[in-house]
Design a protein around this nucleic acid. Structure first.
Lengths: 228, 228
DNA sequence: AAATCAAAAATTGTCGACAATCTAACTTGA
DNA sequence: TCAAGTTAGATTGTCGACAATTTTTGATTT
């Protein structure tokens, strides 16, 4: 019972791929564990064909690693890979912010300011508890990425990279992060975009993501210590 | 007879994926054409199982697009997608150059200067003919990417993005490009890296790629005009 | 008791066949 | 003649079974 709501996809393979992705990101299938094809096929009630296609997709997403004649394993999160991934994110989302600053229309800017106000209100009402922006339309970063207007960039970030990024976010209790600080940074980025200052928007987005990665690093060092 | 040399992979699926990638990049399978599973399976002498897995991989590489119950088609190159892809490349290779400037050792720097001298000598001997650096160890860009030391970035650029990039390079007769100019730019980038000037290295790499994309754009407009 | 080798079990890779869906040709009616 | 509906063909999606490889188990030797 990994997923309560299962949206029927056009094909079993896609369906399984989504369910597996979700199961791995949420930790229902633990890090480093082996993916047994017969076991999972039975569990999801499908044959090994579509399941294997799903696994190939997950390999493309970087969620599992495969070895010929041996099988697939869920990746193991570690600090170095996280830093490497976030460095890529810096480059890509920094570029997205730059592009957004060039092309974004006034009404979209207003809509994003409204979103930040909403986040602000949430923090005021809920004692600074983290606002869960689980990839929906309320995620500031996703909004910026889409505003870039670069279809390739959007696909890469949202469909290929974000699964792993969410995994890192979820698996480390980042109580260390300061939501109000993040919100201030979001606002500064949006200000730069509103003023069409591409250089500044990129710089601020990079700094923002770099900060986040440093916090995550500390959190991971902490949990690594605790689990030891 | 798409490939003269076929290196035996551990699994048929991998083998087919490589052969298909090569066939698409080199244009043996034309742009926009439909991928017929029965036909290709017969052609490569395998069953549809491994072939389908290969197609799923190619979809991850962005070489084909798939629609449920309809099948896969080879992507069609167009200017907008090219510009979008090269913008991503700017961001990522720019970052790679920055990282290389930080970490690269003196002997690797020397080795790269030697490579550029070799390119120079080639141009002198061959009337400025384009040096074919087909992804091997002689490709300046690949060397910089690897020098970044960022495993995720290396994988993304070399294993996932470069197939499409090579496709763009190959399908447009870029006689317009000036090899000596490119070489000068490479040298400037390497100078910045040698001096550990990350900011400058990133800036120059971005400019270099941006220039290349503009030249490609002009070439594509030209060929589009010619084919009309 | 530890290490090496051999046999058995399990898992992955591949295949051919059937079911579901789409595409194209044909018929029918206005 | 054209449009819509229907049927035939082809293609994709899925399944179960077999072959190839790996992993585990157990026996044998030092």
């Amino acid at each position: 019972m990994t997923n309560l709501i299962s949206i029927k996809s056009a094909t079993l393979s896609e369906d399984i791929a989504q369910q597996l992705t979700s199961a791995i990101v949420q930790g229902h299938i633990p890090q480093g564990s082996k993916i047994s094809e017969p076991e999972l096929a039975k569990q999801y009630g499908v044959s090994r064909g579509p399941l294997r296609e799903a696994i190939v997709k997950l390999e493309g997403l970087g969620l599992v690693t495969r070895t010929a004649n041996v099988g697939a394993r869920v990746i193991e999160l570690n600090i170095q890979d996280m830093l490497d991934t976030f460095t890529m994110r810096e480059a890509l989302e920094g570029m997205a912010a730059r592009l957004a600053a060039i092309t974004m229309h006034a009404n979209e800017v207003r809509s994003l300011y409204a979103l930040l106000d909403k986040h602000q209100a949430y923090l005021d009402d809920n004692q600074d508890e983290h606002y869960v922006q689980q990839g929906g339309n309320d995620d500031f970063h996703l909004r910026i990425i889409h505003a870039s207007g670069n279809a390739k960039l959007i696909r890469l970030l949202t469909e290929e990279l974000y699964a792993v990024i969410r995994m890192y976010r979820r698996h480390t209790a980042d109580q260390r992060s300061d939501p109000r600080q993040a919100l201030r940074e979001h606002r500064a980025i949006l200000d730069a975009i509103a003023n069409h200052e591409g250089d500044l928007a990129e710089l601020l987005m990079r700094r923002h993501i770099s900060r986040a990665s440093q916090l995550l690093k500390q959190a991971m060092e902490q949990t690594a210590l605790a689990s030891h």
